[in-house]
Amino acid sequence: MQYRRADVKGGTYFFTVNLAQRHLRLLLNHVEILRAAVKTVKQRHPFHIDAFVVLPDHLHAIWTLPPDDADFSTRWMLIKSGFSRHITMNERRNASRISKGERGIWQRRYWEHLIRNENDFERHVDYIHYNPVKHGYIHQASEWPYSSIHRYIKAGVITNDWGCGVDSNDKSDYGER
């Protein structure tokens, strides 16, 4: 079966992008390189970042693309390659990656989900902001420095104590149904 990605011009998408070696902390160790890669791609291929969180070994994002554009794949390829070019090459690479001249930093594929309505959007934003708590890195979502939650708090959309008191095993309100 051939996998087909959603192709909606001007669509809003949720993404999960993982490192190939999930035990590494490359994304936090080099978060400024990641930010620069995203900024460079955004300048050349505009999109709006609705929500974003960076964890040690993966990231989640929600983007809205321009009305005449559905090409998020090129954007992710450019972000991943822009990041990789600035990281010292010492990762494991299998024969396939070596033969294709690929680095072994990122998983080749990523998860994408077309946001379907306002409720779907809100659930995925909540999932993004709660993810560092879910993984046990912090106790309160606002403690995580690499998250768009701070923009939502500053705008008054949520309070600084948002997500406190939620059982981290109860994911029903945080995008994992």
Rank of each mutant, 00 (worst) to 15 (best):
Q107A: 04
E102L: 15
S96G: 14
E112Y: 01
G82A: 11
F83G: 00
W106K: 01
W76E: 04
D68K: 11
S96P: 03
R75T: 02
D71G: 02
E112C: 02
I115D: 00
E91V: 12
W111V: 08
I79P: 00
Q107P: 01
R108V: 05
W111P: 00
W106T: 02
K80Y: 04
N90R: 11
S81E: 08
R92F: 14
K100E: 13
I87S: 03
H86S: 13
R75H: 07
I98G: 04
L78F: 09
R109D: 14
G104V: 07
D69S: 09
N94S: 13
W76P: 00
A70I: 03
I105H: 00
R97H: 09
R93P: 03
R75E: 02
S96L: 14
I115A: 00
M77T: 12
R116S: 07
S84H: 08
I98K: 15
F72H: 01
F83D: 01
S73P: 01
D69I: 05
W106L: 03
N90F: 07
M89H: 10
K80H: 09
R85F: 05
E91G: 13
I87C: 05
Q107D: 03
E91C: 11
H113F: 03
K80N: 04
R97I: 08
G82W: 08
M89S: 15
T88K: 15
T88F: 11
T74K: 11
A95R: 13
N94I: 07
W111H: 13
W111R: 13
L114P: 02
Y110W: 09
K80I: 05
R108D: 09
M77K: 15
T88M: 13
K80F: 04
I79G: 01
Q107H: 12
N90G: 08
N94A: 10
P67N: 11
T88C: 06
A95G: 09
D68Y: 08
E112K: 02
D68I: 03
D68T: 08
T74D: 13
G101M: 12
N117F: 03
K100P: 00
A95H: 12
S73Y: 05
S84E: 09
W106P: 02
N90L: 07
L114T: 01
R75D: 04
E102N: 14
R109W: 10
I79K: 01
S96H: 13
T74A: 11
K80C: 05
S81H: 05
K80P: 05
A95M: 12
N90H: 12
M89Y: 09
I98F: 09
R109L: 06
R93T: 13
R108C: 02
I87K: 06
G101K: 08
G101F: 10
D71M: 04
R109F: 10
W106I: 02
S96E: 14
L78Y: 10
P66H: 06
N90W: 06
I87L: 07
S99C: 07
N94P: 06
